[in-house]
Structure formats: C-alpha cells, structure tokens
Nucleic acid binder design. Sequence first.
DNA 1: ACATTGCTGTGTACGGTAGACACAGTTGAT
DNA 2: ATCAACTGTGTCTACCGTACACAGCAATGT
Lengths: 240, 240
Amino acid sequence: MAADVDEPANDTVRLLWGPPARPTRGPKPALSLERIAAAGIEVADAEGLGSVSMQRVAGLLDYTKMALYRYVPGKAELVALMVEFAVAGPPAAPADGHWRDHLTAWARELTQAFTAHPWLLDATVGPRLMGPNELAWLERVVSALDGHGLTGAERMDAAVLLAGHVRGIVQQARAAGAEGSPEARLLTVLGALVQQHAEDYPALAAAMAEPGGRDNALDFGLARILDGLAALIDRRTARP
Amino acid sequence: MAADVDEPANDTVRLLWGPPARPTRGPKPALSLERIAAAGIEVADAEGLGSVSMQRVAGLLDYTKMALYRYVPGKAELVALMVEFAVAGPPAAPADGHWRDHLTAWARELTQAFTAHPWLLDATVGPRLMGPNELAWLERVVSALDGHGLTGAERMDAAVLLAGHVRGIVQQARAAGAEGSPEARLLTVLGALVQQHAEDYPALAAAMAEPGGRDNALDFGLARILDGLAALIDRRTARP
DNA sequence: ACATTGCTGTGTACGGTAGACACAGTTGAT
DNA sequence: ATCAACTGTGTCTACCGTACACAGCAATGT
C-alpha cells in the first residue's frame, strides 16, 4: 500500500536509487555519472558550490555543457549526485562497544566528511531526497541506539540532534576560516564590533574577552548531548 | 589595538552597523533600506530565497533594479539586510528565572523566527558578518548562562550547540513540509525507499515503522542538551 | 541670483547562468 | 542494408548581477 517509488517519475530517485540501466542501442556514452560527479566535486572543493556550473563541469571533462544533459536531467540532480558521492558511505561501524563510543566515532567521522567538502552545507539545506550513502549514515546512528529503551521516534530525533550539531560545528569552523583567510578577517571585525558595542552585548564581550579559547566546540556539544542521552537511557532502563 | 572597524572598507559592516548617514546634497532618496529589505523578505517568504532577484525586489517597489544599487552595494548585502531585519531582535529576556527556562524560551522563540522565514536557513550558511539583531540573540543565550561556573568559551559553545539544534529542527520541519505539499511527497518516497531496501537499513526501517510519532524533535533535543548542560553545571557548582 | 557639485533614478550593455531544441553522426537490432 | 535509438554539438531564449554613462533635481558656495 506504500506509494510506488518509481511512479512519481522523480528524476532524482532514479538517478540516486535506480539501477545502472544500460539498454544500449546507439553509441556508447563516453562519460559516466561517477566522472561527472567527481568533476563537480573537484570544482566545489576548490572554489565552492557557487562556482559549479554546467559549463565549468563540462569544461573540466572537455565536453560541452549540453553533453551533461544526456546524463543528468538538470543542475539540481547533478548537485544531488555530488552530495551522494562526496558523503560516501560511513566507515564501517565497530561490531561491539558502548553506544556512546559508537556515537562519538560517528560524529567525528561525519564532521570529517563535512570538513573535507564544506559545500555540503550549502548543498544540503532545503528539502531534498537522500541517497543510499546518506541514508547509511542515518542508519548507523539509529542502529547504535537500538535496544536502550528509546522509541523509534526518539532514536530518529537523537539522530537529527547529532547531525544538527555536526552541521553547526562545521559551519562555525568554516565561518572562522584558516589563519589569515578572509573569513578569519570577518571574525576579527566581528570581535571588534562586539568590543565597540560592549554596552549592548556585555555577556558576549565578557565571554569573548576571556582567554584560553581552544577549539573544543565539537567535543563540548557532543559531551552535553551524550550526557543528556545517557540520563534518558538510564531512566528508561532503570524502571522498564 | 583592536582592528579598526571602519578600516576594511567592508560594505556590509557599514550597512549593518553604520549610522543612518544622511549627508544630503541631491534629491532625497525615495526608497529606504527598510523598504527594500521588506520587499526582499516578502519575495523570499512567498517563493523562497531563490526567487529573490534585483528585478523582483525592484519591481515590487515599482523601481528599476539599478535604483537598488544606490542603496545596496550588491545582492549579498541585500540578503544580509534581509536577514538582519527578518531575524529582528530577540524578545526581551525575562528578568529572573532559572537558566533552563531562559534557554528553553530562547530556543522556542528562535525556532519561531526561523519557521516564519525558512529561507533564513539558506541565507545564513556560509561565512558572513552578523548584524546587531542577530548578535542580540547570541547575547541573550550567553547571558543566560552567566554565573554558573562555565568558562567564556563554554558559554559560546553552548550557544552554538543550541543554535545548531534549532537550525536542524527547522530544516527538518521544512523538509517535511505541509500536508500534501511536494516536500511531504518527498518524505513519502523516502519512506517507501527505506521499506523497499529494509535489508540495508534495518534499524531505520524499524524506527520508522514504529507508530506514535508526534513531532517532538525540538523538545526532545532541547531536553537532552539542557540535561547535559545541567549535569556540567552541577559538577562545576558542587566543587568550586 | 546663480553656477557648481553631489546625489537620484534610468537605460543600455556585457558576460554569465540554466536549459529547450534541432541536427549530424554512430551504433546495435532487424 | 535498413532502421531506430542514442550521443554529443551548436544555436537560441530568458534571466541573472552589475558596470557605466546620462539626465534631472536639490542644496551649497559665491
């Protein structure tokens, strides 16, 4: 009774989930989804998602932009493909171990994936269909929480919570930028603005003025979330 | 010794932080930053950030697109203005009360603001300068954590954690969409895909198959985060 | 009073984007 | 050998951001 997947004629679902599909008749395709996505990823990694255009990607492969439309229905689907390939699958989950260690590793690995391709942040805002690889990340975190007294909805909510934290951290890291980068300059300006308007932002000015700020945001938030989850799990498993 | 704010000739900082600045000589400007930003917000609310173009915004005000460039250096700055106006200031913080209540109210109010203008998600990925209103939100959450034994960096990290959660929740809500919306259709398709590939995603299929999923994701994550923060604060205040 | 100067809004032009469509050439099936 | 399906290309449209020159208006300096 579930909706037929192939019915909505959604191009994206066929691209991401459909079979390789080779009902060959004419000349063999010279390109492939893999190569096209890889070219797009190359551009996005180097210059950001904004620099990814059909022209750019096609040029990198020494083809015309219109050739790409033989493989991909449009730019949105190209980006979806790029996301699916860039996010890859999650590393294999350890077979055993505490759920807390599983989730910690998961968060660190997802952070690495997003840090390697910061444009994933831009490409994954907004409603869209997830691909097999992306879903595998979700599967791993939900599976790590199996059998600890949480409802299905709660396990999903926990996944959203963790993924949201990773996104926030990567976004913050990108906003900070590398030493001497234009992004770092932005932060400096912001800091100066806060000090300059210290009357309006006393708590902020005080917090930023304190020394000893190592970059612990990922671990800090992760520890809080996991502590909170542990408290809930303890309560649930104490009195079934 | 702090970097001079006005020095980098950054247009955005002058727009967001600069004085109204009226060194009038020629004809009085017919438009205003407020009206332009409001027009942009109107378009974005109705059709998304992607539909915001100089033409659209200018047309809504019955002016040519080039007229906008007399007020705003470029589209990026227009969007920054839209963000600053759309996010408004945070509602006044309650004068007293437990930090937990403060943060809960803050998160709910920020969620409301983002839900009212979902395009804020798109407009606030990527490195950028924050405006006075946006900074006021940050100030309120950091201030709520004052005097509970957390370091300045930890208070900032907590703010990032909470803001990231709100963003994640709003993003998820937007991805789900309204009843019968195209976004909701996307979710249905995804659900069907998970069931169809249940062998590859057993935990996910099981979690989604469980009944009784009311929309509690915001409160669930918030409760975990606040529990985790409470545990840390208890530890800190127990042994000073 | 008047010329000067600075500002406003407009029109035009340029290079970029995504994509529709027609076409020539290549290939496998009949 | 014929035909049908497919690939890659060239051309075209519509729209985007924005640089630039220009005409008109308003306040300033004389």
